[in-house]
Each structure stands twice: as structure tokens, then as C-alpha cells.
């Protein structure tokens, strides 16, 4: 049952990202700014923090693979990156204090890391032709702002859901 609810939420996030991109692809937020929703990744990050590492990495791998297959058609990038970041997050959370503010900040920092790594990856594969300065100004900043807003909105509900589902008990 737990798994069912979790995968359902994951699916909603997965589809919502695409719908968001479709609705706000245009100039809604200013001329040439590009906003990339990373809602699914934030879900994975919070799952790692409030659930367990195992769960985070598993969901990261499955969601990442689905993302690669359905959206980007370059297999492996997200599938590899999401579990890896989830692993790093769980390591960080061992050192850091476990409160909501710190959790939000960590999720925020890792979203930035994700975006930069994906940018480098696409540059290597020659799907991107932007210098880093332009990337930072046109993509990174707006993207981070958008995702910060999303993190702030979603952190409390997600925390409640994960704690209700009692995922930590399962891992021990």
C-alpha cells in the first residue's frame, strides 16, 4: 500500500512536470529566460531525506530512467544522476541538522548541482551551444527561482506524507 501511494505521487509529479513545461514554455516569465521544472527530482530529494536512502535511490533510478525514455530520449543521464545525488544527499544529511529549513536548502543546492551537471553533459554531447555565463543568466537563475518556490510550497506537505507513511521504519 505504501509503495502504491508513493508511486502514485511520483507519477503525478512526473506528468505534472511535462504539463508545466507545455503551459509555461513561452514568454510568461520574461523574454528569453528558460525555466526548467525539477519537481520530480525535488520529490526524490525529499524522499531521501525523510524516507530512507534505499528508497530515494530506487525511486531516483526508476524515475530517472522513465524520464530519459519518455522525455529526453538520451538514456542513462538522469537514471545515473538521480540515485547518485540521492546518495550524496543522504551522506550530507548525516552531517547536517535535520530540520525543515536545512532540508529545503539542501534540496535547493542539489537542484543547482543537477542543472549544472546536466548542462555540462549536454555540452559534451553537443546538444547545447551556450557559454556558461549565458547559461547561468538565462537558465540557471530563473530555474533555481522557480524550483525554490516549489520547494518552499511542497516541503511541508511532502514531509507530512513521508512521515505518515513511516518509511524510515521499513528501512531499519
Amino acid at each position: 500500500m505504501k509503495q502504491f501511494i508513493l508511486s502514485f505521487i511520483a507519477l503525478i509529479f512526473f506528468v505534472f512536470e511535462s504539463i508545466f513545461a507545455q503551459l509555461f514554455a513561452g514568454d510568461t516569465f520574461g523574454d528569453d529566460k528558460i525555466l526548467v521544472p525539477h519537481f520530480m527530482m525535488i520529490f526524490v530529494f525529499f524522499l531521501t531525506m525523510y524516507g530512507s536512502r534505499k528508497m530515494g535511490m530506487l525511486y531516483g533510478a526508476i524515475l530517472g530512467l522513465t524520464y530519459d525514455v519518455v522525455y529526453t530520449e538520451i538514456l542513462g543521464v538522469y537514471m545515473f544522476l538521480l540515485p547518485f545525488l540521492a546518495y550524496l544527499i543522504s551522506k550530507c544529511m548525516k552531517i547536517l541538522q535535520n530540520n525543515v529549513l536545512i532540508a529545503c536548502l539542501t534540496a535547493f543546492v542539489f537542484t543547482a548541482v543537477l542543472e549544472v551537471v546536466i548542462f555540462q553533459m549536454n555540452t559534451i554531447l553537443s546538444f547545447a551551444e551556450m557559454p556558461f555565463g549565458e547559461f547561468a543568466e538565462r537558465r540557471l537563475l530563473p530555474t533555481l527561482l522557480l524550483n525554490l518556490v516549489f520547494i518552499v510550497i511542497s516541503c511541508y506537505p511532502l514531509k507530512r506524507i513521508f512521515e505518515k507513511l513511516d518509511l524510515q521504519g521499513e528501512a531499519e
Binding site: E17, A21, Q22, I34, Y71, T72, A128
Partner: peptide, 12 residues
């Protein structure tokens, strides 16, 4: 749908 990662501009 649209590819949310906006590097590859693709629609479903």
C-alpha cells in the same frame, strides 16, 4: 506534453 528538460525541444 513537452520535454521539461529544455535542452532537447520535443513534444509528445
Amino acid at each position: 506534453g513537452r520535454n521539461p528538460d529544455r535542452w532537447h525541444e520535443m513534444l509528445t
